[in-house]
């Protein structure tokens, strides 16, 4: 057992790790979350020709704090028919699944929580846990809208989990590893048909996989145009209908946080992660610059996700299923074959 001594106190491994996680969550993830939140709100407002949050702080920069403050004071209403225990558990599962996605992300050469050999595989597995929470929320509410919303969310997940996994296989074939640090390194040291100037961000050679991944991400996040589980004109707010106050806020934040997490994964897989071209991977300064680079790339992908969200109208439920099974999965399978053949041929 590794133990560290901090201020003369011997700490066990789990204590050190908990402190690190807490420190990072409070010092990094919360400000980053506030920034992403503001960036996205401003972006969507400008796309819709309005100003967006302006009152809380300069240019509405304290909006997230104001929201949390407001929701903290709201009465907690649990419908009397609801299955209380499941009703309370659901937000924990959704949020924990989102948190866990960040545990496998590499932020720099030495800045990571875990460096698992199965990194991306674990991330894909963890990302689908949240739908269990959503299904529980829909069931426990004892509300017809909620139940339909939860069932739709589950149907959506089983349709779009596959294209996402198959799109990632293309990247894995090129990188030759499931380790996320390894994937970053493979992109940094890669070359495109002999040209190694900027490495090989897999966006350039795996653009098909990137497209499939982004579409599947959109569906997994239940964002418009795939937002049938929360379609307000059909089923009120789906699985969140009976949630109010703080618990509603948790679902709401969870949605944004998951969007951020998926954007970060896409940035790592396709845009080169924390690495910069022309800068050595072992450069010590990357430990400071790396997280910022990843953050910038994450915002770029986040921009794409939310751009689609505010541009397209909602699909029908059957169109959603047909799109996944008849288009995305065959495309992803062909992409795997082509990638495989090109990888061996060159």
């Amino acid at each position: 057992m590794i133990s560290l001594s901090v201020l003369g106190v011997e700490l066990a491994y789990w204590q050190v790790t908990s402190l690190r996680v807490l420190g990072v969550l409070v010092a990094v993830v919360l400000p980053a979350g506030a920034f992403v939140y503001l960036f996205l709100f401003k972006m969507m407002s400008f796309m819709q020709s309005r100003l967006g949050p302006m009152e809380a702080g300069p240019f509405g920069s304290m909006q997230l704090l104001a929201e949390v403050g407001k929701f903290l004071q709201k009465e907690d209403i649990v419908p009397e028919r609801a299955d209380r225990r499941l009703f309370f558990i659901a937000p924990y599962i959704v949020l924990a699944s989102t948190f866990l996605l960040f545990s496998v992300m590499p932020f720099g050469p030495d800045v990571y929580f875990t460096n698992l050999d199965t990194g991306i595989f674990l991330a894909l597995g963890l990302s689908s846990v949240s739908v269990i929470g959503i299904l529980i929320a829909g069931w426990a509410s004892a509300n017809k809208y909620s139940l339909i919303g939860g069932i739709r969310a589950a149907g959506q997940l089983i349709a779009y989990e596959l294209p996402m996994v198959l799109a990632v296989v293309g990247v894995v074939i090129q990188a030759g590893t499931l380790n996320l640090q390894g994937i970053v390194a493979a992109q940094h040291q890669g070359e495109i048909f002999g040209f190694s100037g900027i490495g090989n961000p897999f966006l350039l050679t795996q653009f098909v996989a990137f497209g499939v991944f982004l579409v599947a991400t959109q569906a997994e996040l239940t964002q418009t145009p795939f937002d049938m589980p929360v379609a307000e004109s059909e089923i009120v707010t789906g699985y969140m209908t009976e949630y109010s106050g703080l618990r509603f806020l948790l679902f709401f934040i969870g949605e944004f946080a998951t969007a951020g997490a998926f954007a970060a994964i896409a940035a790592t897989l396709f845009l080169g992660g924390w690495a910069l071209p022309f800068v050595s991977l072992d450069d010590n300064s990357m430990n400071f610059i790396g997280p910022l680079v990843l953050f910038a790339k994450m915002l770029m992908v986040g921009f794409l996700i939310f751009w689609a969200r505010f541009t397209f109208p909602r699909f029908r439920e059957d169109q959603l299923q047909a799109f996944a099974w008849k288009y995305l999965i065959p495309i992803a399978l062909i992409n795997i074959l082509v990638t495989m053949i090109l990888k061996v041929a060159f």
Partner: peptide, 17 residues
């Protein structure tokens, strides 16, 4: 230990919520 870290990460998240 890496998997232990993942577990601790999840527990911390639950604790924060």
């Amino acid at each position: 230990r890496d998997y232990l870290t993942v577990g601790i990460f999840g527990l911390t998240g639950v604790a924060l919520v």
